[in-house]
């Protein structure tokens, strides 16, 4: 039986790889420090105001973690300092990524779904393939698939900006800089709650992202994101040889 033909492609550009790993580090610290900050005030409210004793829409107490215990687990001074530090790293890293790639045509070819990909039959078949946890093969594995493209676009251009803007809407300086922004969210506490919900969506993204890596081959994917080299097993050449 002929061996399946394998070949290498350069899947990720150096800037994508560098920005990716800086983002991984800053995301991890943002999440961890965010949890530290949250534990020091483990309730969520809706609207403009909210404080201990005010009707909350979420209480950690209801989940068996008392206010005192949460406070003990959290470290808001550490959390706050690191949250801001990594927020700046995250923001600058993201801006560099966008500026570095935004003027290159290949970035749009890589990231934007084509008309054909957005057609219902194609979307349906891709969805089916994902449900069966089957990795793409051959030339299809060299590119991002349509669901992957859409997910990355949502994360990069909707969820990330939303995290930043809902962060701004919690800052007292923005009651002077742009009270409209806070009103747009429906109040400071709503912005805080949505900030937390959006962070959960990002955690969900990371979980799915990691599961996909396992499905498609951890080593190959990790090597791809570290060195850029990605191994493709080609079916067509297997058949012809």
């Amino acid at each position: 039986m002929p061996k399946p033909a394998k070949h290498w492609i350069y899947r990720h550009t150096p800037n994508a790889r560098i920005c990716h790993w800086i983002m991984v580090l800053s995301f991890f610290y943002l999440l961890y420090s965010g949890i530290m900050i949250f534990l020091h005030f483990p309730e969520l409210y809706w609207g403009k105001v909210g404080f201990q004793g005010y009707p909350a829409i979420f209480k950690l107490e209801d989940w068996g973690i008392s206010w005192e215990l949460a406070e003990e687990l959290g470290d808001r001074r550490w959390g706050r300092n690191y949250h801001y530090m990594f927020a700046w790293i995250f923001l600058i890293n993201g801006l560099i990524y966008i500026l570095w790639n935004g003027w290159q045509k290949k970035f749009y070819r890589k990231m934007l779904p084509t008309k054909q990909e957005l057609s219902p039959p194609h979307l349906k078949s891709e969805l089916k393939r994902h449900m069966k946890f089957r990795a793409a093969e051959g030339s299809a594995a060299a590119k991002y698939n349509v669901l992957q493209k859409l997910t990355y676009l949502i994360v990069l251009f909707i969820l990330f900006p939303f995290m930043i803007i809902s962060g701004f809407a919690q800052m007292p300086a923005f009651t002077a800089i742009s009270p409209e922004l806070i009103d747009m969210f429906g109040g400071r506490q709503t912005a805080r709650t949505l900030h937390v919900i959006c962070s959960l969506l990002l955690v969900l993204f990371v979980v799915v992202h990691l599961v996909q890596m396992v499905v498609t081959g951890v080593l190959n994917q990790l090597r791809g994101m570290i060195t850029g080299k990605y191994e493709i097993t080609s079916e067509s050449s297997e058949a012809s040889s």
Binding site: I37, F38, H40, K48, G50, R80, Q189
Partner: peptide, 9 residues
């Protein structure tokens, strides 16, 4: 609006 660093307002 009074905004506390801990999260309440």
């Amino acid at each position: 609006m009074h905004i506390c660093e801990q999260g309440w307002s």
